[in-house]
Design a binder for these strands. Structure first.
Lengths: 123, 123
DNA sequence: ACGACACTTCGAGGAATGTCGTATGATCAA
DNA sequence: TTGATCATACGACATTCCTCGAAGTGTCGT
């Protein structure tokens, strides 16, 4: 069982596209830093100073790419980062870069990348 | 001296945007896997089955984002991945995600992320 | 010098993306 | 039920991005 589910090229492009926008990247980092509980759409909109409809648009991209999940709590909707998805993306990016040893990036450290059972939610 | 130069939000978006396209992501992975010597534009064009002008367009995005470098060797031009840039990007993405410990991704391992100014991955 | 080769630059058309006001759905308080 | 709040769906517009043929630049072999 591999915590980071194997990502294919299309998934990776989707995830990267989702992150490749200032507002979405900012929102995503907010979620990453907020932890598993996530943040409500309203809070995110306030912090990012974005109109609700624009925020929804971006949040949907993040969810569609599998980078975030949503959960309803009464009137509010909470979004939370999907850490496993990020791990999978990083894995995809660094895949095979260890073949060239010395030039490899930290995240690509074989010792850290292979054995790590941080299995988590994925929905 | 920090191998991964601190990336700001704009740089991160630029890098992510550069990778957020099927052809560029494919080209980038080819470079990552090719190692420090890189690959010539012609070889990349052949493997990706892209017309030269299209390839140049994408390769330039990669270079502009700092993810790749170019070097001329007689008639050919070699492109090579910039591993440090990738490390910086991964670092930016995972920054602060360790605050929530258990949910954290492998790449975000505090032991590997924080004190890497001197030593790096094992040999 | 000449011709061949490797790649880049230029330019234009078409497709995809981001923005945000307004309307609508869902939930809660009284 | 009525009214208020939180968020999403819809629609239209502007802008940016991708593609690729043709022409141009630099390098090599003869």
């Amino acid at each position: 069982m591999k915590p980071p589910p194997p990502l294919d090229a299309d998934d990776a492009v989707a995830a990267l596209s989702a992150l490749a926008h200032p507002h979405r990247l900012a929102a995503y980092r907010l979620l990453v830093q907020a932890g598993p509980d996530g943040l409500s759409a309203g809070v995110i909109a306030t912090r990012l100073d974005l109109p609700p409809s624009s925020l929804t648009f971006h949040l949907q991209q993040l969810c569609a790419a599998g980078l975030a999940g949503r959960r309803r709590a009464s009137r509010m909707i909470f979004y939370a980062a999907d850490y496993a998805a990020m791990g999978a993306l990083v894995g995809y990016l660094t895949e095979n870069c260890c073949g060239t040893a010395a030039t490899c990036v930290p995240a690509c450290d074989p010792a850290a990348a292979a054995p790590r059972a941080s299995g988590r939610k994925s929905a």
